[in-house]
């Protein structure tokens, strides 16, 4: 019984607070480099977004999708390098809370756009309807 308790305990890991990575055992220099990498990647993605907004090289109907993709990528960079959210077992609670938040955000944003898109279509002004081809 004692052995089992011991091994179960050793197999488990302590939780880590979000935003905290001093538990990782990395040196200060390594953690400084991690912040620096995060900054460089974030600046790169920001520049890419601003460049995409001012160039005509991007296929126009795909423009919004390109910017949304860049924004999501940059949010991921911030989460990993600045907030130290990882996929390690000590981060399970943090990731689960974040995942639930993302689910609700998707419901609210896409649900609103979907419903209001239909609503606008259904309540189109009458002069529009009368000029519509039969």
């Amino acid at each position: 019984m004692n052995d089992m308790t011991l091994s179960a305990h050793r197999g488990d890991v302590s939780d880590v607070a979000p935003g905290s990575n001093y538990e990782s055992g990395k040196t200060l220099a390594a953690r400084f480099r991690s912040y620096l990498i995060g900054l460089v990647l974030a600046v790169g993605l920001t520049c890419a977004s601003f460049w995409a907004a001012q160039t005509h090289l991007i296929y126009a109907p795909g423009f919004s999708a390109a910017l949304v993709t860049l924004a999501i990528a940059q949010m991921g960079i911030h989460l990993v390098f600045f907030l130290h959210i990882t996929t390690a077992p000590d981060n399970t609670n943090n990731v689960l809370a974040l995942g639930f938040g993302v689910l609700i955000v998707c419901f609210v944003v896409f649900g609103s756009l979907w419903i209001m898109g239909h609503f606008n279509h259904m309540t189109m002004p009458m002069d529009h309807v009368t000029h519509m081809p039969e």
Binding site: S14, D15, V16, A17, P18, G19, S20, N93, N94, A97, L98, F100, G101, I104, V105, V108, V109, G111, S112, L113
Partner: peptide, 23 residues
Amino acid sequence: VVAGFGFWVFLISDIVMFSAFFA
């Protein structure tokens, strides 16, 4: 860990509030 996680949950609820403004 308790304080950090609790504040993390608050922040996520704050982000959910922002999502309503975004929508």
